[in-house]
Design a protein around this nucleic acid. Structure first.
Lengths: 207, 207
DNA sequence: AGAGTTGGATAGTGCTTCTATCCTAGGCCT
DNA sequence: AGGCCTAGGATAGAAGCACTATCCAACTCT
């Protein structure tokens, strides 16, 4: 298949496909001649991945690049999933805002929940975030962490069991990223509803 | 106080302050004469609000505008808090993506949790989001909603009790928005840690 | 008088994600 | 063989966002 067909199949403009090629998100097709290239179904699934990552998950080109690189390098599944989590849930190095992470909230949580005591991106991000909150004057008590983590423990248990593992690495990243993002947003929206409901309950009680 | 002092006190450049004035985020100062205006401490707190909403919560100018308008119009507290929640947790009309919300997930949740059966933005957003998930092939079972909402019920109960109510409306919006955002992010990060921990537990078990 | 400040206007910057145009070498069809 | 289409490469433009900078004439403080 050549560029035009690739464009028609995915619904992504030829100009955009060229852009993704330039940006290194989409590997070059098999160059038949100087002015002819052949693309495979891999390119189709890659384009679908890029599109979903942009339009559903809202990632930038710069965030997508290392993810697809992992796929192209044939990185192990666990590594890929860790990278996806890092990116989708905003576990960036940016979160270690001023460098001084005073709290070790992660320690407290893994003890409370009896989770394995291994360092991870999620744990570092948690520490950094709690540190940020405290620096902004929003207190985070151990009690709060206990309540939150207890609730999320149940959710994570359920989530992890639902993770299938497709053959195609593009598919793997797509389902993992989309799933994580959508579940994260779902949790946020349910939290909003819960808060609103509790607020209503409280205000009607007062009235 | 005049513009320059306002700039010095808040650490926001005079050019940016002019920009916010143009955009209608910051009300004009008391015009002493055609070329002299006086600003009050209200302007200081408004600028702090704008800055926090941009840099901490990550809202756009367009999202901030209606929020500060509510403050200027002296809207009731509950209405303000609802608007803040709508904005911070992404409960936009945009979420009603294709118009046909087939699922009524909100109904199921309020029944499951015995929450008051009143329509709300959060509920509409939840319906829309679940509809989006299903349209993307990510199933959302009642069982899942039950587990999630049960967990978040406990969290919301705790959150709602921690909400103070400052005098200054700017302060109110600031603490509410920052609090909601930071708590939402905290939940997401704890979820990530929980997922990672469960994944580790599962992989070490297999090994 | 002179330095400084104001509101208002207008233009420019830097970043991101495309989108469009132009070009030549080369293949496909008849 | 001639005409049309396509690939790849380069470059430029567009549109949105949040500023940032410059200029101006009017006016005020000292």
């Amino acid at each position: 298949m050549q560029l035009k067909e690739l464009s028609e199949r995915t619904g992504i403009s030829a100009a955009s496909i060229k852009f993704y090629l330039r940006e290194g998100l989409l590997p070059a097709g098999e160059s038949v001649h100087a002015t002819r290239a052949r693309y495979s179904t891999r390119h189709v699934s890659r384009l679908r991945l890029i599109h979903a990552l942009r339009s559903v998950v809202g990632l930038s080109i710069e965030q997508i690049r290392p993810l697809v690189k992992l796929a192209d390098d044939g990185a192990p599944r666990l590594e890929i999933l860790a990278a996806v989590q890092r990116t989708v849930l905003g576990l960036t190095a940016l979160n270690t805002h001023n460098g001084d992470v005073r709290t070790r909230a992660g320690d407290a949580v893994v003890r409370l929940r009896n989770w394995p005591d291994a360092p991870s991106d999620a744990r570092a991000a948690l520490d950094a975030h709690v540190s940020l909150m405290e620096s902004l004057g929003v207190p985070v008590t151990t009690e709060l962490l206990d309540a939150y983590s207890k609730a999320l423990d149940a959710i994570a248990d359920r989530d992890i069991n639902a993770t299938a593992a497709p053959e195609d690495t593009n598919e793997l990243i797509l389902t993992a990223a989309v799933g994580m993002h959508l579940h994260g947003q779902l949790v946020l929206k349910l939290l909003a509803l819960a808060q609103a409901s509790h607020a209503i309950g409280r205000y009607t009680k007062d009235a």
